[in-house]
Amino acid sequence: MEGGAFAQFLPLILIFAIMYFLLIRPQQKKMKQHQAMVEAVRRGDQVVTQGGLIGKVSKVKEGENEVEVELAENVKVRVVKSTIAQVLNKTEPAK
């Protein structure tokens, strides 16, 4: 009887393992990469927000979770760091 109960749960366990390796694990890896990219954003980087706006980072507020992005000359907006979708051009690291 015990062997039969285990045999019934084996497909469920296999399905969960396959879902973990095909869906959950890659998504966690992607989230970590995004978080590292967002933390590495600094002044002068050209970024794309999730809303599709492209601009240059003019100020990074260290204590807070936001950056100031210049969309056009004298047009600056405050953007939450996590809404940065992509960094187009990185600036050289300060020496």
Results as ranks from 00 to 15, higher is better:
72 A>N: 12
55 G>I: 03
61 K>M: 08
59 K>S: 07
79 V>R: 02
70 E>S: 09
25 R>K: 15
45 D>P: 01
35 Q>S: 13
25 R>N: 13
64 E>F: 03
77 V>M: 09
42 R>I: 10
72 A>Q: 14
60 V>W: 04
22 L>N: 10
19 M>Y: 14
6 F>E: 08
34 H>P: 00
24 I>Q: 07
62 E>Y: 01
75 V>L: 12
88 L>H: 07
28 Q>L: 14
19 M>S: 12
47 V>I: 15
12 L>S: 11
84 I>V: 15
16 F>G: 07
14 L>P: 00
57 V>M: 02
23 L>R: 05
28 Q>C: 01
68 E>L: 05
73 E>Y: 06
35 Q>G: 01
65 N>Q: 08
56 K>V: 12
54 I>D: 02
45 D>A: 02
41 V>I: 15
45 D>L: 00
95 K>N: 07
86 Q>D: 09
86 Q>I: 01
52 G>P: 06
10 L>D: 12
12 L>P: 00
21 F>T: 14
46 Q>H: 06
33 Q>I: 07
93 P>C: 02
41 V>T: 08
55 G>M: 04
22 L>C: 14
63 G>W: 00
61 K>G: 00
58 S>H: 09
72 A>H: 10
1 M>P: 06
44 G>I: 01
81 K>T: 09
8 Q>F: 07
31 M>E: 15
66 E>C: 08
25 R>C: 01
25 R>A: 12
46 Q>M: 11
51 G>H: 08
75 V>T: 06
21 F>Y: 13
16 F>K: 05
87 V>Y: 12
23 L>W: 10
49 T>I: 01
11 P>E: 05
57 V>A: 08
33 Q>S: 13
77 V>H: 03
89 N>H: 11
4 G>Q: 06
42 R>W: 00
55 G>Q: 04
49 T>C: 03
40 A>I: 02
6 F>Y: 05
16 F>S: 14
